[in-house]
Design a protein around this nucleic acid. Structure first.
Lengths: 224, 224
DNA sequence: TCAAAAGTGTTCGGCTTACACCCATGA
DNA sequence: TCATGGGTGTAAGCCGAACACTTTTGA
């Protein structure tokens, strides 16, 4: 443990002399496209890390919470708006930003890409959905943030109905299974998967069939 | 969604004009004492929230990470040092501190109270271990932080060997079970609990018996 | 008509749950 | 000696894992 800063902490109430630090939010936006899980990356148009891919991120603005700032940042960089997000973790290494000290809180969000066309805005020169298996090297420490966000997403698979955020209103069980397999990065038994999902009662058939697909699969929707 | 601050975010790289904000850390320190889980609280000696109980907390100091700051804060307020902690969540409501805007990252830590005598230091007038069932109303939004920290602790019960941080080197299975029951807030079947723990292989007998207790229970220790 | 994908049930093993009596010890 | 707590085993139900064939549809 480091006690070098003992003195600096004897004033422990918040006052105008407190050390302040820039706070940013970054967001791992996941979408399900072409039957696989994808991550939304932006290419940065300015230094540092000019022309490198990274998670969309930006400063937390005055008078707004972290969550509100995530929405603002996503809109300003990619045009995406009104997403629900979950907090992953705060990162505080003193050297994670080369110019000045920055504390970052990372989030993940789940969206349906077909409902959210993306466009590069402001200091971003490009926006792309990347397959998780083909991610480029990311700027800053965003490789780590992306890994942590995926782990968090995985961990919440059982609890939440996260698929509702990622799939269209009507979907086949095959699509749902592909989504699960993408997130977990493992293959699942089709019969056991169907049994588990249908027994949960969270997904119900619509009595419609998806056309243009061999086998004529039933379409399902989230209950309620 | 609120787009009022669109303009303020068009400059999204970090610059000297970025909005800055005081960052603090708070820590829910859990200890196992008198066969129940307890939470370490400090009584604040200064305004705001003078004379109210709360989680120990303080500012993140320049040149140190959040984790290092937690250790510094705990040492400066309670004398506790060198604890391992886990991050719970960041809190960013704009009005959570009555004087100025403060972003707080909350942690939890697990310690053995008998190894960490506590003393009130600096702006703290008292330090006490509180049974979870008898917590007072806490200052700031610390009621919420405490609940969230306990949930996080609960969630990590299965994965980690967290008991190693909370129990003495040698302990009885009854003590371990009491710890689990305290954290989960439910009663467990004694035989099933023993079976599960012993089958896991993470706990092994020492061939010593605890004296001063009826029944003469065997003492166990964490493997390796 | 053929290739591809959808749909469907059963068995097995392991894990969790419920449950009651005897033994060791301190008071 | 007695009251308290420690220690032990078995049976039943539940859940997850493994596994193959028939039906539907688009090409």
């Amino acid at each position: 443990m480091n006690h070098k800063t003992l003195e600096s902490l004897t004033i422990t109430t918040v006052s105008s002399s407190s050390y302040e630090c820039t706070i940013t939010v970054d967001c791992a936006v996941f979408g399900f496209q072409d039957n696989e899980l994808r991550l939304l990356l932006v290419k940065r148009a300015i230094d540092p890390f000019k022309d490198q891919w990274m998670l969309p991120g930006g400063i937390m603005d005055e008078g707004h919470t972290l969550e509100e700032s995530v929405n603002n940042v996503l809109f300003n960089l990619t045009g995406i708006h009104d997403v629900h997000q979950e907090q992953v973790k705060a990162y505080s290494s003193v050297d994670r930003h080369p110019v000045k000290r920055v504390l970052t809180v990372c989030f993940y969000a789940l969206i349906k890409p077909e409902n959210h066309p993306v466009i590069a805005k402001n200091y971003v020169s490009d926006v792309q959905w990347y397959s998780l298996s083909k991610l480029p090297k990311l700027g800053f420490d965003h490789d780590q943030l992306a890994v942590d966000a995926l782990h968090k997403l995985r961990g919440s698979l059982d609890q939440n109905l996260i698929f509702g955020e990622l799939l269209p209103d009507k979907f086949t069980l095959k699509e749902l299974q592909d989504l699960y397999e993408s997130i977990l990065d493992e293959t699942l038994d089709r019969r056991n998967f169907r049994k588990k999902i249908l027994q949960s009662g969270l997904v119900i058939p619509t009595n419609e069939k998806k056309i243009g697909v061999k086998g004529g699969p039933e379409l399902y929707r989230i209950k309620k």
